Computed example of a mutant assay.
Amino acid sequence: MLKLTLPFRLELRGAPSRSMTYLSPLIAIVLTMLLGALLFIALGKDPLAGLKVFMIDPFSGKRAISELLLKSIPLILCALGLAVCFRASIWNIGAEGQFTVGALCSGAMLVWLDVPGHSISGGAGLLLMILAGIAGGAFWAGITALLRDKFNANEILVSLMLTYVAQLLLMWAVNGPLKDPNGMNFPQSKVFSPEFMLPMLISGTRLHIGFVVALVAAVVMGIFMTRSLRGFSLTVGGVAPHAARYAGFSSRSALWVALLLSGGFAGLAGAFEIAGPIGQLLPSVSPGYGFAAIIVAFIGRLHPVGAVLGGIIMSLLYLGGELAQSRLGLPSAITGVFQGMLLFLLLACDTLIEYRLVWKPKA
């Protein structure tokens, strides 16, 4: 049997410094842009024009900046919940499915409320819509928690597979009970009335109050993770599970709290998406925000403030990919390529900060 031997081995450096830990995402971002420039050259495009589309054009004016912040809202919210899970070493990979179910429940609530003569006003309807989204996302994450708790199922596989079930549920809903009867047979719900839409932050733009909610949520989660006993128990359980058990912290409780929080945040993001920029329930309610939020959480070093910065950076890639399609004639897959490069380089930088390559001597 052929055995592959590498000419080097990885050797642990010791505990990396805090400055290098936070410098790693910046190095990964710079390397992503450099590799992106090489990619543009390989595609026959001007690399400077390509980098300008990704790094400068999203800041060119009030409307562009508002779109950048708008796209960061679901990314920040999903990443806040995922950061809690990952800190507790609970690997929730299904934020996309929880986002979808949150949007579906919120859409169903608005379809029920948005009828002539309904007694519930717009403000109360918005609150019910938001609660429905949070409950839907938390319920979907709770399925993963239940299967892990009762049957020791792997939460990575369960949460990921539930994402596809959620997408099928959404497709069934917009082709069935939530389908717009006047929608010319398109798979979509009715367009919701303006009274049930989120208030705008800046007139003339699509940026809604959800951005303020995301910032407040980041502050609250920062306090929760660093100043509360529950947040401390989640962190200790992820870093040192034996010490957590010795201290009396319940791993079962940590599992449920982390997953329900994560699902609730993802469901809230889904609710904001349909009551904000989309304005109705569509099969394509998410371009992959739940999956991209995994990268956002790690760019932000699993810290709530870092999630805000990481969400804006990932929003740059989304907007840059859209602009690259319209201005440079590149395919839509360019966004996924940049996201993949960023994730790969972030993991590489983290690995090389914690380990060093040691070349084996020749025999």
Rank of each mutant, 00 (worst) to 15 (best):
M1V: 11
F8W: 15
F8D: 11
R9N: 11
L10E: 11
R13S: 13
L26R: 08
T32M: 11
M33I: 15
G36E: 02
F40S: 09
K52I: 05
S60L: 14
G61R: 11
K62R: 15
R63C: 00
A64F: 06
I65F: 14
L69I: 05
L75Q: 08
L80G: 06
G81E: 00
V84I: 15
F86D: 06
R87S: 13
R87Q: 15
R87M: 02
S89D: 15
N92R: 10
V101N: 00
P116V: 02
P116T: 03
A124F: 12
A124E: 14
L126H: 05
L128E: 03
M129F: 08
M129L: 12
L131E: 00
A135V: 03
G137H: 01
A145R: 08
N152D: 15
N154H: 15
N154Y: 10
L157H: 07
V158M: 09
Y164M: 04
W172V: 09
L178P: 04
P181T: 01
N182F: 14
G183P: 04
G183Y: 01
Q188H: 04
S189C: 01
K190C: 00
S193A: 05
P194H: 01
E195I: 09
E195A: 14
M197I: 04
P199W: 00
M200L: 15
F211C: 03
F211T: 02
V212N: 08
L215D: 02
F224V: 07
M225P: 03
M225Y: 05
T226C: 06
R227M: 07
S228W: 05
L229S: 14
A247C: 12
A247P: 06
A247G: 09
F249M: 10
S250F: 10
S251E: 13
A258S: 15
S262W: 02
A271D: 00
P277T: 00
L281E: 00
Y289C: 00
A292Q: 09
L302E: 02
H303R: 13
L309R: 05
G311W: 08
I312Q: 07
L316A: 07
L319R: 15
L323F: 14
G329V: 05
S332F: 14
G336P: 03
Q339N: 13
Q339A: 09
L342K: 08
L343Y: 09
F344G: 09
L346Y: 12
L347Y: 07
A348D: 01
L352V: 09
Y355Q: 13
L357Q: 10
K362M: 10
K362H: 11
